[in-house]
Simulated scan of single mutants.
Amino acid sequence: MSMVMIAEASTSRFAPLFLETGFPLAIMGMVVVFMALTVLILIISSFPFAMRRLELVFPESNHHGAKPKKQSQPAPAVSDDGTIPAHILAVIAAAVAETESGPVRIVRTRHLTTSELAWTLEGRIRHHASHRLQTRNR
């Protein structure tokens, strides 16, 4: 075979790649996909702006359909006469005593017995069984 025939055979074999179904189609497909992704990004990033606008238009609107709970005021930490109540003083004293008790030291460790392992295993089995999904008939 001459070189001309080899060149013609190789160009005819790869001709579909350069015509309407090859690289031009692949490039056009990638352009369309990236344009669609860009539009999707713009739509999703506009959601916070749209929500702020909706809250300005409908400020009393409740989006979940539930009645809003009335929030109770917490008890003041200082009473009217300027003293701290006894129950708050007890909590503060317990926190100070705990921080000043020094470092904690592990005195002893032991392996679980077989009966303790059985209880642990039973608890795990029941916990996992409570999360089992219901099967649906299809």
Rank of each mutant, 00 (worst) to 15 (best):
E20C: 02
L25F: 00
K69A: 15
E55N: 13
I6G: 03
L37D: 05
S61D: 00
P59Y: 12
K69R: 14
L54W: 14
T83E: 15
S45M: 12
A86Q: 13
A9T: 05
P76K: 08
V33Q: 05
N62C: 01
S72E: 08
P48I: 08
P48A: 08
P59L: 10
A36W: 05
T38H: 03
P68K: 14
A77T: 06
L19R: 01
P68S: 09
A36H: 02
A26T: 00
F47V: 15
A26Y: 02
M35F: 13
P74L: 12
A9D: 06
L37W: 05
L25M: 04
V57P: 01
F23H: 02
V39N: 12
I41M: 12
H87I: 09
A86K: 11
R53A: 08
V4N: 01
L19H: 01
A75V: 13
A26D: 02
L37S: 07
T11K: 06
K67L: 11
R13Y: 10
L54Y: 14
T83Q: 13
R53K: 05
M30P: 00
I88W: 00
E20M: 06
I6M: 07
A90D: 14
P24T: 00
A7S: 10
L89W: 08
V32K: 15
P74C: 07
G82H: 05
H63K: 11
A94D: 09
S72W: 03
N62V: 14
I88D: 01
A15C: 04
S79I: 00
M1L: 08
A15T: 02
S2Q: 07
A94Y: 13
R13H: 07
A90Q: 14
D81W: 00
T11N: 07
K69N: 09
S45D: 11
H63S: 14
V32A: 15
F34S: 00
L37F: 07
A86L: 11
M5I: 07
T83F: 12
E55H: 07
E8D: 04
V39W: 11
M30D: 08
G82M: 04
I44W: 10
F23M: 08
A7G: 00
S45T: 14
A93Y: 10
A75Q: 12
H64P: 00
T38Q: 03
A75K: 12
V32Y: 03
P59F: 14
M30R: 11
S79R: 15
K70P: 02
H63P: 01
T83M: 14
A86F: 13
S61I: 12
G65L: 10
T21K: 05
A36N: 07
P59M: 07
E8Y: 02
E20G: 01
N62S: 10
